[in-house]
Design a protein around this nucleic acid. Structure first.
Lengths: 368, 368
DNA sequence: AGTTGCTAATAATGCGCATAATCGTCTTGC
DNA sequence: GCAAGACGATTATGCGCATTATTAGCAACT
């Protein structure tokens, strides 16, 4: 019944001061030249202790303050039913960071789903205002929406790299490019000459970064690039066979288990006949026995770092005089995974490999 | 810059009416005998469409309305780092339901962690008020806190069964008792006579329910109960051997893989020498090759149902005249899992089993 | 003409907090 | 003795909405 929770006014009454004084004591800040004596401050703090007062975050927010709530907007369902969980690890990191910082997390699950991905509609956008700031994760962002975000000066951070004019979009991403480059070079140094990239050629940043990394590695090694846009698994396998690849870099949208199956139908074994490197955790992978080579994203770390960055942005929003501006563009290293699906090539490439091996250091030399 | 979003006042000005009128049109409700003509309503709706107005949830809430935010409070970290994910499936269900209902989810991650579990302190408790209502999941609830919850008339729902005086705590739980009983009877009907229960004897509801179900099955079958409180896996295995169990029901706190290992050291094979049934998903299970028999909790379903119930409670809070009160105590059936670790007994029990099997048609009638 | 009854809307208020503007009360200097 | 500041706290206002109390207009009665 007594739906009435303790308010600043209650505390003020107990301490024998005005509500405003309580607010000042609590916030610490005194924007206009207001001062509070040590004496009074103590009385107020005591009253707070006695009453067990705790600020009403809603009122706080309405009055223009911060409420220690950070939002998380995902363009796709956060917790996929059934299939593999892509966002889980991000959220684990985000939650951990939230706990540390002492903020609550608001998951924007109410946004209507249009064509399989959530939209940041006007009403959805308005709802973001509940939180002090917001984390954005997922692929389907739209230029217009982003522009709006920037215009309104609302604090937000993307999880995942985003290019933008003037570098105004803050993000915490994974260094796909370097990781992919390293992956390609690993194959290369083992003696592989025909290394293909299997993946959709969409325009999203991760894809562009992966392709760029692959491209770079191939150029450095003086090898030709081979891009395979995956269709049906059987088809893809056939293309791989046609091209005579000895190693394949698989973008996350490709299901490695499915591909392996299709390959085996063509009597191509992994890794004996084809080395395979995964460029990040596959989107649809079932937990299987295969220990794939490649690299993984530091997803938990990304989530945590993103939240920390957001927290800083929110905090410094008012007072820019903090200890330097936070780094708005953070790229985290991916973790290379040795795995079992990367081995020296055995067949057609052997000759070339031998030639090269004369110039390469120990562990990679033994292929011939 | 223009941090000003469209407000009801803006809309009102455009439509040539008062702010209050806009509010009335929007809510549909007119508590006191206020009426709005179809004419005016249309003008307002047009203005809304033109301006793209969308209510500010914060103000809505402060003014005593609902804000379409439902809270989720977990007594333990929601997304465990590293280990197995217990809450994940619940959240998947919750999120899905939230999307359907059209509400946002507030994760209370700010509560200080005391002794490994989150506390609903006074300040934490106050924060719950941000949301229209709250889902509670986890073990470490405290009587005092619950009492407080009930007293304040704040809408909430427990995920997991909770007993309470007068049945005032709303919950959505799994029917551990029936499922455990069925599990025990399954073993029984296969001819097992020495069926033990392996699990801590804590006072939490799930444990009580499991024990009760086990007890019931044993009584029905005229068998003796054998409770084993697990300590070290080796120890536990030894006890099992001593008791000469032919089947064991494992509470979720027991790691089946670990136990199996310890058992094999004693030359007890699963399932040849010991059938094992899991009473729900183990808390610490690593994804292993064994396909355990037993049952699993409908976790996604529980989450979804709980959120729906909460949503109803929030909705009917004001108007109790809805179509009947929602069912405050929902028990969902667990899913029996055949698995590979339940087989007919092979050794000491065989004799008895043979005797029994001659007199019994179906399964459970044969005990007396 | 005055009262009742009904419809259609508005004005006024408050939710709990942040913050700008204001107001006393003491010192201090001249 | 009086203006000028420093200090310490208060009053007043508004955030955007829900809701209650109130008003205005008009037809239908006695």
């Amino acid at each position: 019944m007594s739906r009435h929770r303790t308010t600043q006014t209650d505390v003020a009454a107990l301490a024998g001061v005005s509500q405003a004084t309580v607010s000042f004591v609590l916030s610490g800040r005194t924007p206009s030249g207001v001062r509070i004596s040590e004496e009074t401050r103590k009385r107020v703090l005591d009253a707070i202790r006695i009453t067990g007062y705790s600020a009403n975050p809603v009122a706080q927010r309405l009055a223009g303050g911060h409420n220690q709530i950070l939002g998380v907007f995902t363009y796709e369902a956060t917790f996929p039913r059934g299939g593999r969980d892509f966002y889980g690890p991000f959220l684990a990191g985000i939650e951990h960071a939230a706990e540390q910082i002492g903020v609550d997390l608001l998951l924007f699950t109410s946004a209507r789903v249009v064509e399989g991905s959530r939209k940041l509609t006007r009403s959805g956008w308005q709802r973001l205002g509940i939180a002090d700031g917001c984390l954005l994760l997922g692929q389907h962002e739209e230029r217009a929406e982003l522009q709006h975000l920037l215009d309104t000066n609302y604090p937000f951070v993307f999880v995942g790299r985003r290019e933008s004019e003037g570098g105004r979009l803050p993000f915490v991403g994974a260094d796909y490019r370097s990781a992919t480059r390293r992956a390609a070079l690993r194959a290369c140094s083992l003696g592989h000459r025909r290394i293909g990239y299997i993946g959709a050629s969409t325009r999203d940043q991760p894809t562009l970064d992966r392709m760029s990394g692959y491209q770079a590695a191939m150029t450095e090694s003086g090898l030709a690039t081979q891009f395979v846009v995956p269709g049906d698994a059987t088809q893809t396998a056939a293309t791989i066979a046609d091209l005579g690849l000895s190693a394949a870099l698989l973008a996350p949208e490709v299901d490695p288990d499915e591909l392996r199956l299709a390959l085996s139908a063509l009597r191509i074994r992994v890794p004996e006949d084809l080395s395979v490197l995964l460029l990040g955790q596959p989107h649809h992978q079932q937990p299987g026995p295969t220990r794939w080579s490649g690299f993984t994203l530091p997803r938990e770390q990304m989530g945590a770092r993103a939240l920390h960055l957001l927290s800083q942005l929110v905090g410094t929003e008012a007072a820019d005089d903090q200890q330097g501006t936070p780094d708005l563009h953070q790229l985290l290293e991916c973790t290379d995974v040795p795995g079992e699906t990367l081995t020296p090539p055995e067949n057609a490439d052997r000759h070339e490999a031998a030639v090269r091996s004369s110039t390469v250091p120990p562990q990679e030399r033994n292929n011939a």
